[in-house]
Simulated assay, not measured.
Amino acid sequence: MFEQRNTVHDGYEYVDEASIDPELICSICHQPFQDPQYTPCDDTFCRRCITQWIQTQNTSCPICRKSLSIDNLTQVNRPLRNMLNRLQVKCTTCGQSGLQRGDLDDHMNKICPKMEILCSSADIRCSWKGQREQLDEHLSTCAFNSLRYVIIPLVTENSEFKEQIIEMKDQIDKLRNDSQQLQERANRLAIQADTYQRENQRLQEQIVQLQLQPLRKLYR
């Protein structure tokens, strides 16, 4: 059975959902479109909704019943996406209202005071985790943060040394490979030289035999 979508979404809810233009509502989940897709019959659905419909229900459009497959879906035009991005939402983490849906990711990742985040020194192994509004208080006592200006240059230097070591290993491997190829070529040349030497010796012996033939006839 098709899974119905909840009114409260991931991290937000609509400010006035009843006033949203019906043209922006998916006829499957009855919610504003998420990643909307056109069908060849010019109907529009959320990507997740229509994909799940095709996979679990049948291969026809939910509205007009024309034949449909996932490969037939196409992304909607920019004006429709812009209208959806401008829908007013409320952050359910901090309660701030009047946000545009398209700006929610920036709000959650950069502004939301109640969003759980890591310490800015997590990259040097501070294990603190808490709300964004608590970060300044934590940083005032964070031992890692106070040592950051000492540790970061060392970490950077260590990273550069590691990169240099990797580069040197690559160069050594290349030189070793070149040396092996030169050795193989030298071995082939040595074999060719030995072959030429044996051939030259055979020719020399033939020349001597030819030179001796007149003398043999003379002393017969």
Rank of each mutant, 00 (worst) to 15 (best):
E133H: 08
E133D: 13
E133Y: 05
L135H: 02
D136S: 14
H138Q: 12
H138E: 04
H138K: 12
L139C: 02
S140V: 06
S140R: 15
S140Y: 02
S140C: 05
T141I: 14
T141R: 13
C142F: 05
C142K: 01
C142N: 04
C142Y: 02
C142R: 02
A143L: 11
A143R: 08
A143V: 14
A143M: 10
F144G: 00
N145G: 01
S146E: 04
S146G: 12
L147G: 00
L147W: 00
L147Q: 01
L147K: 01
R148E: 03
R148N: 04
Y149K: 11
Y149V: 06
V150M: 05
V150F: 03
V150T: 11
I151L: 14
I151W: 01
I151S: 02
I152F: 04
P153A: 05
P153S: 08
L154Q: 12
L154G: 05
L154T: 10
L154H: 09
L154N: 10
V155W: 01
V155C: 06
V155F: 07
V155P: 01
V155S: 03
T156V: 11
T156W: 03
T156G: 05
T156E: 12
T156I: 08
T156S: 11
T156Y: 06
T156P: 01
E157M: 09
E157R: 04
N158E: 07
N158R: 11
N158F: 07
S159G: 10
S159D: 14
S159Y: 06
E160V: 11
E160T: 12
F161W: 13
F161I: 15
K162D: 02
K162P: 00
K162V: 07
K162Y: 02
E163R: 07
E163C: 02
E163W: 01
E163P: 00
E163M: 06
E163N: 07
E163Q: 09
E163A: 14
E163T: 10
Q164Y: 03
I165T: 02
I165G: 01
I166V: 13
E167M: 07
E167P: 00
E167F: 08
M168A: 08
M168T: 03
K169T: 10
K169D: 11
D170H: 13
D170L: 10
D170Q: 15
Q171A: 13
Q171Y: 06
Q171F: 06
Q171I: 10
D173M: 11
D173C: 07
D173S: 13
D173L: 14
D173F: 09
K174T: 14
L175E: 08
L175A: 12
L175F: 13
L175T: 09
R176G: 09
R176C: 11
R176I: 06
N177H: 12
N177S: 15
N177W: 04
N177D: 15
D178K: 13
S179V: 05
S179M: 08
Q180Y: 11
Q180N: 14
Q181G: 07
Q181N: 15
Q181I: 10
L182A: 12
L182T: 04
L182M: 14
L182W: 08
Q183M: 14
Q183S: 15
Q183L: 14
Q183Y: 14
E184H: 02
E184G: 00
E184V: 04
E184Q: 08
R185D: 13
R185V: 04
R185P: 00
A186D: 07
A186S: 10
N187C: 03
N187M: 05
N187V: 04
N187R: 08
R188A: 15
R188Q: 15
L189I: 11
